[in-house]
Amino acid sequence: MKLSRGRCRLRYLLAKAKMTQAELSRRTGYSPQQISNWVNDREPMSYDAAATIAHVLACQMEDLYELMLSP
């Protein structure tokens, strides 16, 4: 079995934290366009970005993506 990264959960986590994409951008230093790309699954986050965002959202890095098992 292998774990792989599924869909980004950032939209859900932002709503849960009552935080806007713009606020996340200000707090992390990532551009609003970059945040939007992650929220809309246009590109995956780097390890550093995921660590920073998890810290700001007070969650685990693993929470940022659905994890999928493949045979």
Rank of each mutant, 00 (worst) to 15 (best):
M1Y: 08
K2Y: 06
K2E: 14
K2G: 11
L3N: 02
L3Y: 12
S4C: 13
S4P: 00
S4V: 15
S4H: 08
R5Y: 08
R5P: 01
G6I: 13
R7H: 09
R7C: 08
C8K: 07
C8S: 13
C8E: 02
R9E: 15
L10Y: 04
L10E: 00
R11N: 13
R11P: 04
R11A: 15
R11Y: 14
Y12C: 08
Y12G: 05
L14S: 12
L14G: 12
L14H: 08
L14P: 12
A15W: 00
A15Q: 15
A15R: 06
A15L: 09
A15T: 10
K16E: 15
A17V: 03
A17E: 14
A17G: 08
A17Y: 03
K18E: 11
M19Y: 04
M19T: 09
T20G: 10
T20M: 08
Q21M: 11
A22Y: 12
A22W: 07
E23M: 10
E23P: 09
S25F: 00
S25D: 09
S25G: 09
S25T: 10
R26A: 13
R26L: 10
R26E: 15
R26H: 08
R26D: 14
R27M: 09
R27W: 00
R27H: 06
Y30M: 14
S31P: 06
S31N: 06
S31G: 13
P32C: 11
P32S: 14
P32N: 12
Q33G: 12
Q34A: 12
Q34S: 14
I35T: 01
I35N: 06
S36D: 15
S36A: 14
N37R: 04
N37Y: 13
W38G: 00
V39W: 00
V39I: 05
N40V: 05
D41E: 13
D41I: 00
D41R: 05
D41F: 01
R42W: 04
R42H: 11
R42P: 00
P44D: 07
P44T: 09
P44Q: 11
M45D: 02
S46Y: 01
S46Q: 05
S46L: 02
S46W: 02
S46C: 04
D48R: 02
D48A: 14
A49V: 04
A49G: 06
A49P: 01
A50N: 01
A51E: 15
T52Y: 02
T52S: 12
T52Q: 11
I53E: 02
I53S: 04
I53M: 06
A54E: 03
A54I: 03
A54D: 06
H55N: 10
H55E: 10
L57K: 03
A58R: 11
A58D: 15
C59S: 07
C59K: 00
Q60Y: 07
Q60C: 12
M61G: 11
E62Q: 13
E62C: 14
D63W: 06
D63Q: 03
L64A: 01
Y65F: 13
Y65M: 07
L67S: 11
L67A: 10
L67K: 00
M68V: 15
L69Y: 12
L69P: 10
S70V: 08
S70I: 04
P71C: 06
